[in-house]
Design a binder for these strands. Structure first.
Lengths: 225, 225
DNA sequence: CCTTGTGAATAGCTTCACAGCA
DNA sequence: TGCTGTGAAGCTATTCACAAGG
């Protein structure tokens, strides 16, 4: 149709990007179980989406399937990994080593493919110097130096809400453009910086909304049973 | 045009529901600072969305603003809280008291408005009996009994991936219909059950994708300008 | 005046259904 | 034959722009 071997279309929809990691996880599981080929139907099932959506998503990366057969698992793993940028390894710094930061530092899936926790940073002298998940906790005064020295390109903010914006500004000032924010605040950042946020209490509130609708009649007014 | 005092339209868009907690947080902050009235422009700014979207979202709940003036902060807090079901309190059980479960149990924003951690449950005898955030960790054998006894309606899964589906099935069997899943697996559940998932490694992968694009020009194949 | 609430326009995402190809 | 890849249709969400109303 267009160029004979167009490696990738530069405009992959955001919704598709958000699902690629899901496909990747399903594919890794299949590869481990020795499955060589998978149909869109089966892969979609494993990822919890419908097959039309899966095929449309994959079509944005290129034509990596074989009609009448399906997708080669290994090959698709490679293509999706490459598209997501997981063929290089990313140095991640976690700022804020409270309960959550500790959990993140120890979280296996975090460290796994493509990512490497390269620094733990905190402001509390009580915590600085501790060794967590094999890493020494460094002082927040060293923030800029550590980020530059270790080539950190993604920063995870697990600080208290009040500290998040300050830390955010500082890491942006040394060139970081990707931030994963666990603090319950809206960060203000330049256009060029990507922020993703994970907010535990927001997720609960969304569940409560739906739960209320379901329980709405029966449970609300009366005595619990 | 419609009924004279229609309290709420039963069909609030999912995208709107997902933003209500954001507005609520911004409003709480304003209430604390003694702000009595706020315009859509200012509230939108504080929540990190644009004002047209905010007005459209709020219009789904009812007409709670005053033209030429704005929204009454306290009143809007109440209306959104009620819509989200936060005027009642929800008993939450956390299953899996590893690093993450511990962090969640101690997370302040979790316990705050509307939610109460009512049980901590784990399978590891080493952990059972410990006291975390003032709560006794109970054994997984007690799962069903504890859920019923404490009136738990939302379950947070912070177990290893391999255990998540089994626990999920068990809590659904005793009537739980809202689950917040931190385990990196796709849970299979009946239609009537709501699952929200938080996957730390997926968030990182999405960031890596965008980071790669940004770095893409300088570092990778050189084309374009 | 000022700011809300909302139809209308636009953009983005999902699903359908089938042509195209191994 | 069987499954992918994809136009076209349908749906949801966002943005625009302005009438309605304090």
């Amino acid at each position: 149709m267009k160029s004979p071997s167009q490696p990738r279309d530069r405009g992959i929809p955001e919704a598709t990007v958000a699902r690629l990691p899901l496909y990747l996880r399903a594919l890794h599981g299949m590869a481990e179980r020795g499955i060589a080929t998978v149909s869109s139907e089966d892969l979609a099932g494993a990822a919890g989406v419908n097959s039309a959506k899966l095929r449309k998503d994959l079509s944005h990366l290129g034509s990596y399937g074989t009609r009448g057969v399906g997708y080669d698992v290994e090959y698709l793993v490679y293509q999706i990994s490459r598209e997501l940028g997981l063929t290089q390894d990313w140095a991640v710094a976690i700022v804020g080593v409270g309960n959550l930061g500790r959990a993140l530092a120890n979280y296996g899936g975090f460290v796994s493919r493509g990512f490497r926790v390269a620094a733990l940073i905190d402001a509390d002298p009580e915590v600085v110097g501790d060794s967590i998940a094999g890493l020494n906790v460094e002082h927040i005064d060293e923030l800029e130096a550590v980020i530059k020295r270790r080539g950190v390109s993604i920063v995870v903010l697990a600080t208290p809400a009040a500290a998040a914006q300050v830390v955010c500004d500082r890491v942006i000032a040394v060139g970081v453009t990707s931030i994963l924010n666990f603090a319950p605040v809206v960060l203000s950042v330049p256009e060029s910086v990507d922020v993703r946020k994970v907010d535990l209490s927001i997720e609960l509130q969304i569940l409560a909304f739906h739960e209320q609708r379901k329980a709405g009649g029966p449970l609300m007014a009366v005595d619990s049973q």
